[in-house]
């Protein structure tokens, strides 16, 4: 049961991470272009935060299954 729930939660998280990136890129308010420490928010998100979060979630789900 826990395995199935963790697997579904991981898939939903991955989809959410992608969806947020699309929203940041196409956002009419241009939030993705806001600079944080000289780098745009979109790049911090898509290049650092989301990949690390995606990998962490996947590792946890796979570890629970194995």
């Amino acid at each position: 049961m826990l395995k199935a729930v963790s697997q579904r939660a991981a898939v939903v998280t991955l989809c959410t991470l992608l969806a947020v990136a699309i929203v940041l890129a196409a956002d009419p308010l241009h939030l993705g272009g806001v600079r944080v420490a000289g780098v745009s928010l979109l790049w911090w998100y898509a290049g650092v935060a989301a990949p690390l979060a995606a990998v962490a979630v996947t590792i946890v789900a796979l570890a629970l299954r194995s």
Binding site: A10, A21, A25, L42, A54
Partner: peptide, 20 residues
């Protein structure tokens, strides 16, 4: 390219979803 950061993320998320 306009989609460069998104492509980077998608290239990672697609195989992770497959591994699950």
């Amino acid at each position: 390219a306009p989609n460069a950061p998104l492509l980077l993320l998608a290239a990672l998320v697609a195989p992770l979803a497959a591994l699950l």
